[in-house]
Computed example of a mutant assay.
Amino acid sequence: MNRDLKLLEEKIGYHFQDFSLLKKAMMHSSYVNEKHLPKYECNERLEFLGDAVLEVISSEFLFYEHETMPEGELTKTRASMVCEQSLAYCARDIHLGDYLLLGKGEEATGGRKRESVTSDALEALIGAIYIDGGFANAKEFVHRFVLNDLENKKLFFDSKTILQEIVQANFDAAISYDLIAEEGPDHDKSFTVSVHIGPEEYGNGKGRTKKAAEQEAAYQTILLLHKKNIK
């Protein structure tokens, strides 16, 4: 596992002075329970700290990026940028789930891909970097892996709404989402959905829930339409 975590260090471009902090950031409560370790050894305390650090960094980013945006809009934008789904998306980019220390039960029920687990681990990682290397290093990590490519992330998270607007403006037809496959046991299901605009099929999407699959399918459809210069 130490070797695996060294690969994670390479991936994020930050090398810990206290390597035990990285290990703790990846230690899920299910692992701690299974190993009969003290509860405080899991990553929840680091997650608590990382959440606060992330809020400061994302708030500062928005404050300077949008100099005329009112407080209410800033709050709403920050909430969408650092919500569970958004952080899980960022965690997926660096394959953070692969490095988690999980209990056997959590492992068996798909914990490595569970958004609540991976988003918490990302916050714990931010907390660990903050303790180990200070605010500047935590800020560099957040800017590189959370506040990057925001336009594309917004397109992804708001994909169903954006697609609806594109279709209303450019098509005389309705959107429909069709479930075309459902696989896996109840605790680890996978859904595949296709998007139709009128009778014509466009993008497909896969996800652990129907909603996630629809979102992915809408996003893929938007990309296809953009290639045809339909926006």
Score class of each variant (00 low, 15 high):
Asn2Ala: 11
Asn2Thr: 11
Asp4Trp: 05
Leu8Val: 03
Lys11Glu: 11
Gly13Phe: 07
His15Met: 07
Phe16Gln: 03
Phe16Gly: 03
Gln17Tyr: 13
Asp18Leu: 03
Asp18Met: 02
Phe19Glu: 13
Leu21Val: 07
Ala25Lys: 00
Met27Val: 00
Met27Asn: 01
Ser29Asn: 07
Tyr31Gly: 01
Tyr31Val: 01
Val32Leu: 04
Asn33Thr: 10
Glu34Asp: 09
Lys35Tyr: 06
Lys35Ile: 04
Pro38Val: 09
Lys39His: 10
Cys42Gln: 01
Leu46Tyr: 01
Glu47Arg: 09
Phe48Thr: 01
Phe48Arg: 01
Phe48Gln: 02
Leu49Arg: 06
Leu49Ile: 13
Ala52Glu: 14
Val53Tyr: 05
Leu54Ser: 04
Leu54Glu: 01
Val56Trp: 02
Ile57Pro: 08
Ile57Asn: 07
Leu62Ser: 06
Leu62Asn: 10
Glu65Trp: 05
Glu65His: 11
Thr68Tyr: 12
Pro70Asn: 13
Gly72Thr: 08
Glu73His: 09
Thr75Phe: 12
Thr77Trp: 04
Arg78Ile: 14
Met81Asn: 06
Glu84Val: 13
Ser86Leu: 07
Ser86Val: 08
Leu87Trp: 06
Ala88Tyr: 08
Arg92Tyr: 10
Arg92Gln: 15
Asp93Gln: 15
Ile94Cys: 09
Ile94Arg: 13
His95Thr: 09
Leu96Thr: 10
Tyr99Phe: 15
Leu101Pro: 00
Glu107His: 12
Ala108Asp: 15
Gly110Arg: 07
Arg114Phe: 02
Ser116Trp: 10
Val117Gln: 01
Thr118Cys: 03
Ser119Arg: 01
Asp120Gln: 10
Asp120Met: 06
Ala121Val: 01
Ala121Asp: 00
Glu123Ile: 00
Leu125Lys: 00
Ile129Glu: 01
Tyr130Cys: 07
Ile131Ala: 03
Asp132Val: 12
Asn137Asp: 13
Lys139Gly: 05
Phe141Leu: 11
Val142Ser: 06
Leu147Arg: 04
Leu147Val: 11
Asn148Glu: 14
Asp149Glu: 14
Asn152Pro: 00
Lys154Gly: 04
Lys154Tyr: 12
Asp158Arg: 07
Asp158Leu: 11
Asp158Glu: 15
Lys160Phe: 04
Lys160Ser: 11
Leu163Ser: 04
Leu163Val: 06
Val167Cys: 07
Val167Asn: 06
Gln168Met: 11
Asn170Asp: 03
Asn170His: 15
Asp172Cys: 04
Ala174Trp: 02
Ala174Ser: 13
Ser176Lys: 13
Glu183Ser: 12
Pro185Arg: 02
Asp188Cys: 05
Val195Asp: 03
Val195Tyr: 03
Ile197Trp: 08
Ile197Gln: 05
Ile197Pro: 05
Tyr202Phe: 15
Gly205Cys: 09
Arg208Ala: 09
Lys210Leu: 14
Lys211Phe: 05
Ala213Met: 08
Ala213Glu: 06
Glu214Ala: 07
Gln215Leu: 09
Tyr219Ile: 03
Tyr219Leu: 03
Tyr219Ser: 06
Gln220Ser: 10
Thr221Val: 08
Ile222Cys: 08
Leu223Phe: 05
Leu224Thr: 06
Leu225His: 08
Lys227Met: 12
Lys228Leu: 14
Asn229Gln: 14
Ile230Ser: 09
Lys231Glu: 11
